[in-house]
Amino acid sequence: MRRLSNMGNSEKFRMAKVSSIQRRATQKVLSVNAEVEIGSNAGRVWSLLNEEGTKSVKEIIKRTKFSELEIYLSVGWLAREGKLNFEEQNNEMYLSLK
Protein backbone atom coordinates (compact mmCIF):
# COMPACT_ATOMS: atom_id res chain seq x y z
CA MET A 1 0.00 0.00 0.00
CA ARG A 2 1.34 3.40 -0.96
CA ARG A 3 1.67 6.19 1.57
CA LEU A 4 -0.60 9.19 1.15
CA SER A 5 2.38 11.52 0.97
CA ASN A 6 3.61 9.67 -2.14
CA MET A 7 0.27 9.91 -4.00
CA GLY A 8 -0.83 12.52 -6.45
CA ASN A 9 -3.98 14.57 -5.85
CA SER A 10 -6.05 12.65 -8.42
CA GLU A 11 -5.16 9.34 -6.79
CA LYS A 12 -6.01 10.72 -3.33
CA PHE A 13 -9.36 11.96 -4.69
CA ARG A 14 -10.10 8.54 -6.24
CA MET A 15 -9.30 6.78 -2.94
CA ALA A 16 -11.47 9.23 -0.99
CA LYS A 17 -14.32 8.68 -3.45
CA VAL A 18 -14.02 4.88 -3.19
CA SER A 19 -13.91 5.17 0.59
CA SER A 20 -17.06 7.32 0.55
CA ILE A 21 -18.90 4.80 -1.66
CA GLN A 22 -17.84 1.94 0.61
CA ARG A 23 -18.97 3.88 3.69
CA ARG A 24 -22.42 4.59 2.14
CA ALA A 25 -22.79 0.95 1.11
CA THR A 26 -21.91 -0.18 4.63
CA GLN A 27 -24.40 2.29 6.13
CA LYS A 28 -27.09 1.01 3.77
CA VAL A 29 -26.42 -2.62 4.76
CA LEU A 30 -26.49 -1.68 8.46
CA SER A 31 -29.73 0.21 7.91
CA VAL A 32 -31.35 -2.76 6.16
CA ASN A 33 -30.13 -5.12 8.89
CA ALA A 34 -31.48 -2.80 11.60
CA GLU A 35 -34.84 -2.60 9.84
CA VAL A 36 -35.04 -6.38 9.59
CA GLU A 37 -34.10 -6.78 13.27
CA ILE A 38 -36.64 -4.17 14.41
CA GLY A 39 -39.35 -5.81 12.31
CA SER A 40 -38.49 -9.23 13.71
CA ASN A 41 -38.55 -7.89 17.28
CA ALA A 42 -41.88 -6.20 16.60
CA GLY A 43 -43.21 -9.57 15.44
CA ARG A 44 -42.15 -11.16 18.72
CA VAL A 45 -43.85 -8.41 20.72
CA TRP A 46 -47.02 -8.79 18.60
CA SER A 47 -46.99 -12.58 19.15
CA LEU A 48 -46.62 -12.15 22.90
CA LEU A 49 -49.55 -9.73 23.05
CA ASN A 50 -51.60 -11.94 20.73
CA GLU A 51 -51.04 -15.02 22.90
CA GLU A 52 -51.24 -13.45 26.35
CA GLY A 53 -53.19 -10.22 25.99
CA THR A 54 -52.45 -6.88 27.63
CA LYS A 55 -48.95 -6.47 29.07
CA SER A 56 -47.02 -3.63 30.65
CA VAL A 57 -43.86 -2.46 28.93
CA LYS A 58 -41.90 -3.80 31.92
CA GLU A 59 -43.52 -7.22 31.50
CA ILE A 60 -42.73 -7.23 27.79
CA ILE A 61 -39.08 -6.37 28.50
CA LYS A 62 -38.90 -9.22 31.02
CA ARG A 63 -40.56 -11.76 28.74
CA THR A 64 -38.69 -10.91 25.53
CA LYS A 65 -35.34 -10.06 27.17
CA PHE A 66 -35.11 -7.10 24.77
CA SER A 67 -33.42 -3.89 25.84
CA GLU A 68 -35.61 -0.89 26.54
CA LEU A 69 -34.48 0.62 23.22
CA GLU A 70 -35.42 -2.55 21.31
CA ILE A 71 -38.86 -2.54 22.95
CA TYR A 72 -39.54 1.08 22.11
CA LEU A 73 -38.38 0.60 18.51
CA SER A 74 -40.68 -2.44 18.25
CA VAL A 75 -43.58 -0.56 19.83
CA GLY A 76 -43.01 2.32 17.41
CA TRP A 77 -43.07 -0.11 14.50
CA LEU A 78 -46.34 -1.68 15.66
CA ALA A 79 -47.87 1.70 16.50
CA ARG A 80 -47.03 3.02 13.02
CA GLU A 81 -48.87 0.02 11.59
CA GLY A 82 -51.86 0.87 13.81
CA LYS A 83 -51.75 -2.43 15.68
CA LEU A 84 -51.53 -1.27 19.31
CA ASN A 85 -53.72 0.18 22.02
CA PHE A 86 -52.00 2.16 24.77
CA GLU A 87 -53.29 2.59 28.30
CA GLU A 88 -51.54 4.21 31.24
CA GLN A 89 -52.28 2.85 34.71
CA ASN A 90 -50.45 3.94 37.87
CA ASN A 91 -47.67 5.62 35.85
CA GLU A 92 -47.06 2.44 33.86
CA MET A 93 -47.77 1.94 30.14
CA TYR A 94 -49.82 -1.10 29.11
CA LEU A 95 -50.05 -2.36 25.55
CA SER A 96 -52.62 -4.54 23.84
CA LEU A 97 -53.47 -5.40 20.26
CA LYS A 98 -56.28 -3.61 18.45
Score class of each variant (00 low, 15 high):
81 E>Q: 09
22 Q>K: 14
11 E>L: 07
64 T>P: 00
84 L>P: 08
13 F>Y: 10
92 E>H: 04
88 E>G: 00
9 N>W: 08
31 S>F: 12
15 M>H: 06
22 Q>D: 12
72 Y>I: 02
44 R>L: 11
10 S>A: 14
94 Y>S: 07
60 I>W: 02
37 E>G: 03
41 N>K: 14
34 A>D: 15
57 V>R: 01
20 S>R: 15
40 S>W: 09
85 N>Q: 12
10 S>L: 14
41 N>F: 11
65 K>S: 06
68 E>P: 00
14 R>Q: 14
89 Q>C: 05
3 R>G: 01
32 V>K: 13
41 N>D: 08
82 G>L: 04
73 L>P: 00
10 S>C: 07
66 F>S: 02
19 S>Q: 14
30 L>M: 14
18 V>C: 06
11 E>I: 12
20 S>W: 13
35 E>A: 15
50 N>T: 08
13 F>W: 11
53 G>F: 04
20 S>L: 15
85 N>A: 09
73 L>S: 05
72 Y>S: 02
29 V>M: 14
36 V>Q: 10
6 N>L: 13
45 V>E: 07
16 A>V: 09
31 S>L: 13
18 V>Y: 09
81 E>V: 00
66 F>G: 02
74 S>M: 05
70 E>S: 06
76 G>Q: 08
15 M>V: 08
73 L>V: 00
84 L>G: 07
24 R>M: 14
41 N>L: 11
47 S>G: 01
71 I>P: 03
76 G>Y: 05
47 S>Y: 03
46 W>G: 02
68 E>H: 07
47 S>A: 11
65 K>I: 00
5 S>F: 04
51 E>A: 07
26 T>Q: 14
79 A>Y: 03
9 N>M: 11
86 F>G: 03
45 V>Y: 03
62 K>A: 06
61 I>Y: 01
3 R>C: 00
33 N>H: 13
67 S>Q: 03
79 A>I: 00
32 V>P: 09
43 G>T: 04
52 E>T: 10
52 E>W: 07
89 Q>H: 11
85 N>H: 12
70 E>H: 02
15 M>D: 12
